[in-house]
Amino acid sequence: MRLSCAAYWRMLCRALAAQGWALVRERPHEAGGAGGDSRLPGGPWPRDWSLLWTAALRRTGEAAESLAALDAAARARRTNRGPYDDAPLAPELLGALARHAPAGGPAITVRHLTGHHERGSFAEMLARHGGIDFSHPAAWRETHSYIRWTPAAVRAHGDGFPVAQLFGPMSARQRLAKRIALAPPVMKVLCRFGYDRSLAGGLAAEVRRTPAVVLMHFADESPGLADAFRGGARIADYWLHAASAGLALHPLSVLMQHDAPRRTLQAQLGLSGRLFFISRVGRPRTAFPPAPRSPGAADHRTV
């Protein structure tokens, strides 16, 4: 969640910089840490809110980049879970993506898996461990609660995963079959017969056909809040740059959200520190709809 907040913050800062606002200073607020008290003073916000990050900006009037180009990249930036072209990506493009990083901050390494053998090894790991989220009842109930099965549900909630975004276009019969199979009580039974392994195997097969997998890791094994915010900024910049180049991403979070497979993967690939981002990268063969977003007025408070 901190990485997601940080990615949003990076995009907001770039949008402000494109309109002549310069970032003067930033400060993390880590509860119980050296960053200071994370509690908010009284004001027009919920009592249980806490500070993550504060910043000061100054109006300069000089645009740091094109706002129109940034807006186009942000609109093109979306998760695409469909198949990608298997043609190799140009080394120059991958090199530019790896170098495109915000100045300062902690040491972050970007690595691309492009060789057949290393992508195959990663896919094998995914096939072995990628079913964890499906076979863990509590984890799957939480994920399932965000699947939106109808356009009306998408409009009503303003968040989550439209079913077409997860599985692409489907007939009414296919949608009903998916809805039954993925219901938590049914999933619990199906996993006893290996359905979770089947789903993980399908995802691993897509990885084998994907031209590149990107991994990002901190040099520090125990990153703090400031590290997380720099990492989120790195994700945002990478994704925007990739979108501008016509590439799509499909994050594969399961292997880093569970410590055992994450440590195994890091040892297998020789990655030090802490892995914090994994994604397929490629040119999508099909377009996926953007994720739903609730109205901005519902998520922002003006003080």
Rank of each mutant, 00 (worst) to 15 (best):
N80Y: 07
L89R: 06
F122T: 03
D71S: 13
A74V: 03
A68M: 00
P102N: 14
A96E: 15
G95I: 12
L93P: 03
R78G: 15
A69D: 12
L113Q: 05
T114M: 02
L113G: 04
H117W: 11
P88S: 11
H100M: 09
L67Q: 07
R128D: 09
A123P: 01
P106V: 14
I108C: 03
T114K: 07
R128H: 07
T114E: 14
A72R: 13
H129V: 05
R128G: 07
A74R: 10
G130L: 00
L94Y: 05
D133Q: 14
A123C: 03
A96L: 10
F122E: 03
G105L: 01
L126N: 01
F122W: 10
Y84F: 10
G130Q: 02
G95Q: 08
A107L: 13
G120E: 05
T114L: 05
A76S: 10
G130A: 03
L126T: 08
H129R: 07
A123T: 01
A76Q: 09
I108D: 01
G82L: 09
G120P: 01
P102F: 12
D86G: 11
R78H: 10
R75E: 13
H112A: 10
L93G: 04
A68V: 09
L94I: 03
A69F: 00
G104V: 07
H116E: 15
H129S: 11
R128P: 02
A103D: 05
R119V: 02
P91G: 15
L113T: 00
L97G: 08
H100P: 00
N80V: 14
M125R: 06
A103L: 13
E118W: 00
L89Y: 04
R77Q: 05
R81A: 05
R99F: 02
I132T: 13
R77W: 10
A87C: 11
A90E: 15
H112W: 15
I108V: 15
A72E: 13
I108N: 05
D85K: 04
S121W: 01
P106F: 13
A127W: 02
A98G: 13
E118H: 02
I108G: 03
I132A: 14
A73N: 02
R128T: 08
D86M: 01
A98C: 06
A68Y: 00
E124F: 01
G115C: 02
H117Y: 13
D85R: 12
G115E: 02
Y84D: 01
